[in-house]
Nucleic acid binder design. Structure first.
Length: 256
DNA sequence: ATGGTCGGCAACCGA
């Protein structure tokens, strides 16, 4: 069995105790973290010394940043996209136990009228080419992270009101679906085709308490890995700790 | 309810 998880930390340094506790209590083989919000020279490596995890990361000041934790040997590492701008603080590929683990923090997009939104749409297209260039759909590939898209109406608490948001509008659905069409299965939906399951709740307005959430973190895999998927779930227990992230831990287990 | 709350960082931007 291999257990793979993803978590948008919204600052790894502010979420140190939550991450350390979760790793020691759950012992995933791989944890992909987004929004570490720390420069590489300041990454809190010492805090994880003796944890049993190797960590690869790329960050920048204030914004973005990704890290991949593994307690199995990391066989390969690749930072960034392969065209310009490489955007290293948003994507790390590792190969672990023969599985390509692609940890992404997809740009949020700010507002539909902004250049950042166009950049987001292009980012999905660039990512699709990245997959197509490296892998075939017979390879073991897991794509996970904060995708900044809620793909269907049941993935947000109020689709009518939220329609038009940069994470919930047709251009984003199409861009995400186009990457998926290369050969990915949405592992949560394989197990729970119609359940209301969220991974993110805005800090504002008591949305967690009222369960006004979004499903914007995803775990997708190629068919040979999807066939081995045995469990997929959101772990909300860290939300009950002090100063939680606005996202939860999201986990998939495979019979490998 | 067109507001609300975080984190980083040092004024506001990003989410």
């Amino acid at each position: 069995m291999i257990k793979i998880a993803t978590f948008n930390a919204n600052s790894i340094r502010s979420r140190l105790e939550i991450v350390k506790d979760w790793l020691s209590n759950n012992r995933p083989d791989v944890l992909c973290v987004q929004e570490t919000k720390v420069q590489d020279k300041d990454f809190p490596l010492d805090e994880f010394a003796g944890s049993g995890y190797d960590i690869v990361f790329r960050g920048q000041k204030s914004y973005n940043g990704v890290a991949t934790f593994s307690r199995l040997p990391i066989e390969e590492v690749e930072y960034g996209l392969d065209d310009e701008p490489k955007d290293e603080p948003r994507i790390i590929r590792t190969k672990i136990k023969g599985i390509n683990i692609v940890n992404t923090y997809v740009p949020q997009g700010n507002s539909p009228e902004s250049d950042k939104f166009q950049y987001k749409l292009q980012w999905y297209a660039r990512l699709k080419r990245y997959f197509a260039k490296r892998f075939t759909t017979d390879d073991m590939v897991a794509w996970l992270g904060d995708m900044n898209v809620a793909p269907t109406d049941i993935d947000v608490h109020n689709p009518a009101a939220l329609l038009g948001h940069v994470c919930f509008r047709p251009e984003v659905w199409e861009a995400f679906a186009d990457v998926k069409s290369w050969g990915f299965t949405d592992i949560l939906r394989k197990h729970y085709p119609e359940e209301i399951i969220y991974t993110f709740w805005d800090y504002r307005g008591g949305s967690y308490h009222n369960n006004r959430g979004w499903r914007i973190d995803h775990i997708l895999t190629t068919p040979p890995l999807a066939a081995k998927s045995i469990k997929c779930y959101v772990d909300k227990t860290p939300r009950e700790q002090e100063k939680p992230s606005d996202h939860t831990f999201f986990v998939a287990e495979f019979d490998i």
